[in-house]
Structure formats: C-alpha cells, structure tokens
Computed example of a mutant assay.
Amino acid sequence: MSPKQKNLTVGELTKINNLFPKKSLGQNYIFDQNLTNRIVRSAGTLADYNVIEIGPGPGSLTRSIILKNPKNFLTIEKDHRFAKLLEDLSKKSSKKIKIIYADALKYNFSNLFKSPGSYKIIANLPYNVSLPLLFKFLEYKKFVKSLTLLFQKEVANRILALPKNKSYGRVSVIIQNNFRIEKLFDINPKSFFPKPKVFSTLLNLYPKETTYNKDQMECLSLVTKAAFGQRRKMLKSSLKELRINIAELLEKTKIQVHQRAEEIPIEEFLKLAKNYSRLRKK
C-alpha cells in the first residue's frame, strides 16, 4: 500500500484498485464503518475467542473486528482480487490476520476447529450462499460460541418463522432445533454497494445442545423435506415418499392424518423424525 493510500477509506481503496463487486459471487459491500462497528458489537466480546470472518471482501467488517481485539482472527475469502488489500490490512494491524483463500462452501473446517465453544463467526454473507453455509456449520456447531450473520430479510424471516406462518418451513424447523436465534436489526439496501432490491437482517445464532443422534438428524431432514415439499397437502399424502407405513408413523407421533406441515410445531417434527428412524429399520 502506497503512503498516499494509507488513510483512504475502504470505499476509496476499492475504487482505486478497481475492485468492483462481482454479481456472480453475490458481492455487496458495506462501506459505512459506523454500521460495520455496530454489526461487530452485536457479536459481544471477542477478546477471548477465535474469530472467523467469511467473505471479508475489501475489508470493511474486517477493520471493525480488528478494533475489538479478538484472541485470534482468521478470514476465508474466495476472491483472490482482495489479496493485497487484506494482506496490507494484516500488516497494519497489531493482531495478525490469518487469510485463507478458499471457497467456504467447499472448505474443510475440521482442519480449523480445535476447541469446543471457542469460535465466533461473523459475516456479511452473499445472499446466494447464506443458507448452504449455515447448514454446513451445523456439522461444527459444538466448536462455535455464536454466529453473527447477515441474511436477506426474507431468508431471516424463514429462519425465525413459527407454525401457521407462511414463512414457516424446513429451514425454520432445522435451524431452530439447532440454534437459539436472536433478531438484531434490519439494514436498508442503501447501506450496500451495489444496492440490493431487498432489506437485510442481522441475526445472532447460539448453538443448542441436542440429544438426537446422527441418524435421527438425517431423518429430520428427510421428514421435513417430504412434508414441506408439498406443504399444502395433508401429511398422510406428503409423507408417502418416505416409503413406510405413514398411518403408523402419524399414530405413534399422535399427529392427525389431516394435518399439514405448516401446522406442526418443531417439537412434533422431532418426534416424527425419531419415530421414522425406528420404523425405517423394521
């Protein structure tokens, strides 16, 4: 970084270095440092945690994380165009940033996570990979203290939805079963460059301890996929693709055959998954 560039804002550095957002990667930058500071404050104290930022881009959120002095700081960035900006930022920082150039969706986090509950994840996620990444982190949730993530508002509503709400679905059931979720605030499209057509929502997600084994979690995925795949149908019809005796499954779970997926509370879906796990082994 040249002496002339040292005191430039992230927005100015992005323009000078021709680092314009790529639509194919779902990139939307936040240049307002007050906003990125607010996002990072929402993650709570960082001093005792290993912090991971997914998709730092030009480094706006990265700068705010540095100010909170994390125990260790690692970023994962797919776009190599940002290498110089991020490496210059690391050199300027009192806390060295470890930068991994990789696609977070394909990255093997088992190489990274070591100590349970010692990691915090903070990210302005591209809309097109936000849910796949969140589902990926289910596998590693025992290592994570919290996730502070930006989602498209419609996706956040699906995550937060309760039964008998049009947004309630498979995502609601699986994510709420695994996380306690706190809605923090909405962000106007004007805060991003380029400006998206929709609002974003910041969520904190805190992993829950669950007593369900791997097979039962797989069954929950299969049951919710079948049930919400045809959400307007009664469960006696929508669950047929599970290829077991559906009447027996519903009877054991004490669910009426005429009920629909959108009416079933999360706890009942968990019972369905447990009973399906037993019945499919017969």
Score class of each variant (00 low, 15 high):
163 P>D: 06
245 N>Q: 04
56 P>R: 09
58 P>A: 10
139 E>W: 02
233 K>Q: 13
141 K>S: 10
190 K>W: 06
6 K>F: 12
191 S>T: 03
278 R>W: 06
35 L>R: 08
278 R>S: 11
277 S>W: 06
111 N>H: 05
48 D>Q: 12
147 L>M: 15
94 S>V: 01
158 R>K: 15
131 L>D: 01
221 S>G: 12
164 K>E: 14
174 I>N: 06
41 R>G: 00
227 A>W: 13
255 I>V: 09
221 S>K: 15
75 T>R: 01
224 T>R: 01
191 S>V: 03
200 S>D: 09
65 I>C: 00
206 Y>M: 04
115 S>T: 13
58 P>W: 08
186 D>T: 14
146 S>G: 05
193 F>Q: 00
41 R>W: 03
254 K>C: 10
246 I>L: 10
279 L>K: 07
253 T>P: 05
209 E>W: 01
161 A>Q: 11
268 E>V: 07
204 N>P: 04
247 A>G: 11
230 Q>S: 15
267 E>T: 15
157 N>W: 06
143 F>D: 03
280 R>A: 03
164 K>Y: 07
180 R>E: 08
64 S>I: 00
26 G>D: 11
261 A>S: 14
4 K>G: 04
70 P>R: 05
61 L>D: 05
53 E>Q: 00
185 F>P: 12
177 N>H: 13
178 N>W: 07
221 S>Q: 12
33 Q>P: 03
269 F>A: 05
177 N>V: 03
266 I>L: 11
3 P>R: 13
163 P>Q: 08
220 L>K: 09
281 K>Y: 01
229 G>L: 14
145 K>V: 03
250 L>M: 08
88 D>Q: 11
139 E>H: 10
279 L>T: 10
64 S>G: 02
143 F>Q: 02
36 T>A: 03
220 L>R: 08
78 K>M: 02
219 C>L: 02
34 N>C: 04
203 L>F: 10
30 I>H: 00
267 E>G: 07
185 F>I: 10
132 P>D: 02
177 N>E: 08
209 E>H: 05
227 A>S: 15
6 K>D: 11
188 N>P: 06
134 L>R: 01
169 G>K: 12
88 D>Y: 07
114 K>N: 05
243 R>N: 15
175 I>T: 08
108 N>L: 00
113 F>M: 02
281 K>N: 09
274 K>F: 13
263 E>D: 08
37 N>K: 14
276 Y>R: 08
234 M>G: 02
